[in-house]
Amino acid sequence: MLSRFERMTNYAVLTVCAVTVLVPVVLLVFLAMGPTYGGGIVEFSSLHLGNFVRAWNAGDLGTGLLNSAIYSVCTVMATALLAIPAGYAFGTMRMRGGQVLFVVLLVGMMVPVTAVIVPMYYDFLSWHLLGNYGGLVAANTALSVSFGVFWMRSFFRTVPSPVLESATVDGATRWGTLWRVCVPMGRPAVTVMGLLVFMWTWNGYLLPLVLVPSSAMQPGALMLGNFQQRYGTEYSLMAAGAVILALPIVVGYVVFQRRLIAGILSGAVKG
């Protein structure tokens, strides 16, 4: 067993690390409540929630959050609908040339946004995809789908072939087996993929900055970006806006963290 000294040192060091992460976040929430100071000491009676209302109205954050939700949900659904069948085929079926196709898709995981963003802008301009929901969903999906296929393939390879075969014996088609047997079995894998893609889309900045010029359809991250440039000196207002944008993701993280982290951990070992 670990010595008492070592145990205490570990806790001390980790606590220092946790504090460097948590203190800035807690201060953000604190500043958002607009504290005033009397003689260098915080007057706790001055804390209030008014800034959240002001930030919500001034930054049009309600629209931003709704847009973020639309983009994230649509991207997750599109990625899942595309990646699940493809991962199933790559993971369980014989396919001539399948290796090559899979490697091509994997290279897609290495393509940085910056390598495609410029031509994408001009393509979307001529395809009328610029500044509408479909365009950003398509771009986000194209950039997540390689990961999705890779992720689902490594899950489907762990489905024992007897399960696939016995389902076939029962008269299920492969398509039916996929959705009625394999996907329910793989709910944890699908969940983690969905959570990651949701998070990436919700937090993404460069893609919407380029592809969604009209403010009515911008996601919350972009609106908060504009907002902090406009109200750069109104610190409480900025903080309140940031808390509003972060809240759904942080709550989701706290609720799902066990599953999310366990999923990433198991995926990271395979990868």
């Binding site: 670990l2 201060l27 919700w202």
Partner: peptide, 29 residues
């Protein structure tokens, strides 16, 4: 043989789930 490590793991990963806009607002403040 260490306990309570799940807590530290969750906390230390937290900045990863924050949008970069939120991160810069924190540090600008």
């Amino acid at each position: 043989g260490m306990r309570g490590m799940g807590f530290y793991r969750t906390v230390l990963f937290l900045p990863q789930v924050l949008s970069s806009v939120v991160v810069i607002v924190i540090w600008r403040l």
